[in-house]
């Protein structure tokens, strides 16, 4: 459903070129929940943001459902983006609009007539359990509720893919769990393929079928959670998974190029 073919991202920071993502390939099957985990600065978010071309790859190609995004015109890309939902760490809701208007905004882009928009807004807010908050403004909601509105907005156009950029990193553990449950439900009920970036291994473990570990702009290993007994082999993978278990591991991670 999502394929990155040798994508890389280089940009200039001051005088220096920074290679945020080194040539990387990744394939995510339909219906999967793919986690990307790593420290900050590892290039996880950049990779995710290349999936809908918020970040244009310096080299390589991106395919969503067989369509090459990197080859599209601006108009075609806008259309393609309607079937790619996205949620963010800081929700990014319109603060001067009600929850309903936030969801409706993306439906207007799709050119849906008024009545159908209203119906779809109700449906989506219902899915995230916030039908009663339709007329409220984001500032009146809790962090978890805001993220649920953002999920409703991302779902409005019936996306095939949902991109999640640290969706629970600003939330407490209990709220995190509830957001993860919503994401799981969306994946199960609507067969939405999910790509999720996080630095919280617990989140990835709870939700993902497959976890890719990223370090210094590269995917260093991929763990298929459907296969029993798969263990991380890289030092970073072991470090992350050990931390998650809370066990006192003998393996301490000493990444030399860690750019935290």
């Amino acid at each position: 459903m999502i394929t990155f073919k040798e994508v890389s991202k280089r940009y200039k920071a001051g005088r220096q070129w920074v290679e945020a993502v080194k040539p990387t390939s990744l394939h995510i099957e339909k219906g999967q929940i793919q986690g990307i985990i790593g420290f900050s600065g590892a290039g996880k978010s950049t990779l995710l943001r290349m999936a809908n071309l918020l970040e244009t790859p310096t080299t390589g190609e991106v395919y969503i459902d067989g369509q090459e995004l990197t080859g599209l015109s601006a108009g075609e890309l806008r259309e393609a983006r309607r079937s790619i939902g996205m949620i963010f760490q800081h929700y990014n809701l319109l603060s001067n609009e009600t929850c309903a208007a936030n969801v409706e905004f993306v439906l207007r882009a799709a050119g849906l007539p008024y009545r159908e928009r209203k119906r779809r807004v109700e449906e989506c807010l219902e899915i995230v359990g916030l039908a009663d908050k339709a007329k409220q403004y984001p500032a009146q909601l809790s962090g978890g509720q805001k993220q649920r509105v953002a999920i409703a907005r991302a779902l409005a156009n019936d996306p095939k893919v949902l991109l999640c950029d640290e969706p629970t990193s600003a939330l407490d553990p209990v709220t995190t769990l509830s957001i993860l449950e919503f994401l799981e439900k969306i994946n199960r009920e609507f067969q939405v393929t999910i790509m999720l970036v996080t630095h919280e291994i617990q989140v990835a473990k709870r939700l993902c079928n497959n976890i890719a570990v990223m370090e210094n702009g590269q995917i260093t290993e991929q763990l298929d959670r459907n296969l029993p007994g798969v263990k991380p082999v890289t030092p970073l993978g072991q470090f992350l998974f050990d931390t998650a278990d809370g066990s006192s591991s003998s393996v301490w991670y000493r990444g030399e190029d860690y750019r935290g």
């Binding site: 309607r82 990014n92 905004f105 882009a109």
Partner: peptide, 30 residues
């Protein structure tokens, strides 16, 4: 206007005129 809010609209495939009216002018109206 926070850049993330504009980015969310771009990611949703909104055309420029919706971004101007629905995001920029709406968020900046105060």
């Amino acid at each position: 206007v926070p850049n993330g809010v504009i980015e969310a609209a771009v990611a949703s495939g909104a055309p420029m005129k919706h971004i101007i009216w629905g995001v920029l002018l709406s968020e900046a109206r105060p």
